[in-house]
């Protein structure tokens, strides 16, 4: 009876030591892992402001944001109505055009193909939008995938209109 009581106390002590030790090891490991996450200076550059006043209707520009290209397109009336008229059932990744833009004249999206990351070419492809030459994905005037291996529409980053001529991305 006494022996098993002693054994329980011993086991508890060893278990407690191992447990607290494991917590210590975990706490030590975290900084070693977290130091590889983006540091403060990288996170500080996480927003970019873009001047839209020089962009003509039907034209687009590409800006660098967080190391990736962002397409900013000033759409024509025709491109806007074309985007709005597409039925959701036809889309691999159903999204309404209205949900992808803040002001329908301006399409702001990450110029990165959602298949394997190449930069699609503008004014190309069968849907009047973009075409990715790497594996043949076609995007429409709202940047939605219509044909080809890409699984989802081109991503819309977080952005807002600072004023009528300026947007802030990120």
């Amino acid at each position: 009876m006494d022996k098993s009581g002693k054994k329980d106390r011993r086991d508890f002590l060893f278990t407690a030591s191992y447990t607290v030790g494991a917590i210590g090891l975990g706490a030590t490991a975290w900084p070693l892992i977290h130091q590889m996450n983006p540091d403060r200076s990288v996170k500080a550059l996480a927003t970019t402001e873009v001047d839209l006043s020089q962009i003509q209707p039907g034209k687009s520009i590409t800006v660098l944001w967080r190391g990736k290209p962002v397409f900013i397109k000033r759409r024509t009336e025709g491109e806007i109505s074309e985007a709005k008229s597409v039925k959701l059932e036809e889309l691999k990744h159903p999204e309404k055009d209205e949900d992808r833009v803040k002001k329908e004249e301006w399409l702001v999206m990450l110029g990165v193909c959602t298949h394997l990351g190449c930069v699609p070419l503008s004014d190309k492809g069968e849907y009047n939008g973009w075409f990715c030459p790497c594996h043949g994905s076609h995007y429409d005037t709202s940047g939605r995938i219509r044909k080809g291996p890409a699984p989802t529409n081109m991503e819309i980053p977080k952005y807002e209109f600072v004023d009528n001529n300026t947007i802030k991305i990120g």
């Binding site: 011993r10 002590l13 060893f14 030591s17 607290v20 210590g24």
Partner: peptide, 16 residues
């Protein structure tokens, strides 16, 4: 503080 706690536990384990 954590190390002191752990040291005490390790010490007692060692003594045991």
């Amino acid at each position: 503080i954590f190390l002191i706690v752990l040291t005490i536990l390790v010490y007692l384990s060692m003594k045991r």
